[in-house]
Amino acid sequence: MIRFFRILTLLLLAACLTARGQELRTGIPTDGGGYLAAGDRLCRLDAEGAVLQNLPLARPLRALASLDGRLYALDAAGRQLLELNESGVIVAAQALGTKGRLRALGEGDETLWAVTDAGEILRSEDGRRWSLQDFNAEYAGYYPRMDFRAVAAGGGAVMVAGLDEAGRLAVFSSSRGSVWSARPLEYGGGQVADFEPVSLGYDPLRDAFCLAGGGGTLFTMPGCTHCNRLDRYPADVLYARIPNGFSALLLGSGGLRKTE
């Protein structure tokens, strides 16, 4: 389903939040509109992009995801999965029993995904019962040890990105979330992408995963593994690319907000 809200309104909102000194870092479109988070604020938007609520948060959030109409987030410390109601109130908090800190949350193909900086990959079909795969243990000797930073799913695939033990970018993809393939990071005739990943998103119209991160980098990975593309935007860090119908909102440090 294509979830649509007005990008212009988002930009105005972004400007408003940035003016308050709080950078927009994450956001999600949902069936009925969308959410944007900045610092200790959560903005709920209707399907037309109008701001329904500008909500104070009890504590800052790390990531947002939505499943079956429920809103989920990670606490800033990466210790708990939070379930929020539509007013931004935390209605449930759950420790997921991970060794590492939860770093990212994503939803796709009716499944919630989370990753940790200790190389753990978690999945849940209902937001309550979670299964955990210890990637670093399972792939010891086959793939580098990973500090995962980002996860996204969609189009029949799930992708995780992070830094390996040498501090280099590494990305893995899977169709069902158990068996992982290394994603080639070559682009533009033999160059290899290497930057600090911040967030992953899946763009259904492009059937591509978009990895945002350090150096204002957006690394687009379509189905064709030959066809990666790297773009840089004028920001120290590109926090997120949030697809929205035929457009996408880019959020970056220094107040970067841009549609493409």
Partner: peptide, 21 residues
Amino acid sequence: EEKQSLLGNNMAAIPRLGVKN
């Protein structure tokens, strides 16, 4: 799932069988 993961140019590692990526 392992079979599916091996049908592309990035053939996955299957550690339990000693198959490298």
